[in-house]
Structure formats: C-alpha cells, structure tokens
Amino acid sequence: MPDQQGRRVPGLDRPLQPLTVGTSALGADPGDEALAEMMVSGRLRQLDTSNNYAGGRSETLIGAALKQAPDGVTVFSKADSDPGTGVFDGDRVMRSWEETTSRLGVETLPIYHLHDPMTITVSEAMARGGAVPALVALREQGLVGAIGIAVGGGTMVEDYIRTDAFDAVLTHNRYTLVDRRAEEILRLAAERDMTVFNAAPFGGGILGGSPRHATRYGYRRVSPEFAAHVERLRALCERWGITLAAAALHFSLAEPRVHSTVVGVTSAERLAQLESLADTVIPDGFWADLAALGSPPPSPID
C-alpha cells in the first residue's frame, strides 16, 4: 500500500486511512457475524456503511462487533430516505441518524453522508426543513465531524458539491483503470479541499477478476470495444507480473486527489484478498505503459 500521510478529518482522532472496507453486502448472509468481527479486528479497520445496507443489518452487525473490538476502529455511515415512502427531508435525516447511531452503539460519527437522494431535487434538499440543513445542524452540534454527499448517476454529485455545503464526497464506479468520468468531481472537490472517497475501483467486478462480472462494468453489459480494452489491460498486467485487480486498486490508491478508496467486501476470503492486493508493489514503468494504451472507450454507465 502506498506510504501516504493520512488526511486529517474533523471528528476523527487518527489520520484517514487510504483503504476503507465497504459493507453494503454485510448482513445478507446469516453467518455474517463472523465477517463483521473480522472487519473490526483485522488490519483494515476503517468501515463504510449506511442506514439502508441489508435493511439496517450491516450497521447492526458492525455495532455488535464494535462492543468486542479493540480501539482504533473507524466507521462512516450515511443518511438514507425512508425505505417505505421515499421521503428524504430534514426529519427523515434525523430519524436516519438516530437509527444508525443506535445500531452502531455510538454517539458521534466522523463523517456522515447524504446517500442517494434520488427522490428529491437539490433545491428541495437545500431548502429550509430539507435534508442538507439537518446534516449541517448535526455538524454544528458536534454529532458529526464532517458531512458528505454520496450519490451515483448523472451530474447530481457535481450539483451538490457546488452548493459548498459539504466537507466530503464519495464517488462510485467513476474513477477506475477504465473510466475517468469522475474527473470533474475530483476537480471540484480539490478546489474546495474536500475529503474524497473513491468507491468500487473494480468497476463492479470486471477489474477484480470476477468471472460472474466479466461482461459487465458498473453492473451493465460492456461493449465489444470496452471488453477488448480490458483484455489489453489484462495482458499488460501479465507482462509486468501483476494482477489486473492489483493494478485497479493501486490506480485509485496512487491518485493524490483521492484520500481513501472504498472496496466492498463480501466474505473473509475477499477481505484477505484485499489485504494482499494492498501489499502488491506496482512497478513504476507500468503506469507509463498504461498511459500508452490511450483513453479507454466510453463506459456503459452514465
């Protein structure tokens, strides 16, 4: 893993780590208690969760594991719309906050994101009584150290960044070996000195070696041109003696505008694999050869 000096985040008593374990799938299987315990006791003990992951079970399992965990575990979470009605106003943000902190067994969080506000407009989110003023109130009360925006699709992320209300941003499936659509997000965030999380560096699995996702990027089927570019990347990695997954992870880790890379983990095996990938040393010459391949074809997601 690159030897980077971690970014300081208000409300976090230790430097931000370059790798964050994503827990969106945690709680989907009955035996995930053991996986949660590994996540909080292992080497990579910086976790990203959300109010709606596995219907709240992700946070519940993390909270139970935290009771037995040593010091030094960091958890970030997100406010979500009402699962039944889709309402996402200020009252819902406060209820989401109460649900999250109750499940996790904590009183404060270092970063709390507004998550996928697809049921409201940016103007509605920013208005009096809206979701963003509620997040700001939580920050002003010291209940969160920083507030972030985490949303996929279109230009909504950029629109929220331009409000200047947020301290952090989480982008997903938009800055990888084969996709640079987050360039504008990274530019806007850097101008505002925001903390940046880059999630899904494997593009939903195609860059992580998953046979099940070999024909999809961001969960959508890829074009023949896109698939051919991935194969050229794979061949390049083989020539340098590294795996495509290692190159994909370190592409994000090496980007100075990205402060932490979020990788979803679904099993103990995947957690161990992530640690091994993080330790892989990428030869300097690889990046020059990568650039020589040219710009990747358009990805299948917006």
Rank of each mutant, 00 (worst) to 15 (best):
R57G: 10
D193I: 01
T243Y: 02
I111N: 01
V73P: 04
G205D: 07
R57D: 10
F197T: 08
I120E: 05
M38R: 15
A227I: 09
A69W: 02
P300K: 12
P83C: 11
A235Y: 04
T215C: 14
R8P: 01
H213N: 15
A182Y: 04
R14D: 01
T74H: 04
S50M: 06
T155R: 13
L138P: 02
D71C: 07
A36Y: 01
F166D: 03
T49N: 06
G22F: 05
D284P: 00
L66C: 01
P83M: 10
A268C: 11
V263L: 10
R57E: 14
L135D: 04
R187P: 00
D302I: 09
I206Q: 01
R174D: 11
D48P: 02
D89R: 03
G152E: 13
V144F: 09
P10L: 09
G84R: 14
E183T: 11
Q17R: 14
R8V: 13
K78Q: 10
G264C: 04
P110V: 08
A131Q: 03
L135A: 04
E269G: 13
A254Y: 00
V258N: 01
C237L: 03
Q46D: 10
S223G: 10
T155F: 13
Y175A: 05
K67W: 00
P211Q: 10
S50A: 15
S102M: 07
S58H: 00
I120G: 10
T60C: 00
P296T: 08
L170I: 12
E184A: 14
D284T: 13
G42C: 07
E99G: 12
R212A: 15
P256G: 03
D13T: 01
A272Q: 13
S252M: 06
T215M: 14
V196N: 02
L104P: 03
H259C: 04
L12S: 06
F166P: 02
Q46T: 12
A146C: 02
D116R: 14
A268L: 09
A54L: 05
L188H: 08
L236C: 00
G294E: 09
V151I: 15
P133C: 05
A25Q: 12
S50L: 05
L233V: 03
L114F: 02
S252C: 14
A168F: 05
V122R: 12
W287D: 05
V87L: 15
E140L: 09
V122L: 07
A228K: 06
E98P: 02
L290S: 05
A79I: 08
V151K: 01
P283H: 07
S96W: 05
V136I: 14
V93K: 03
I206T: 08
T100D: 00
S41N: 15
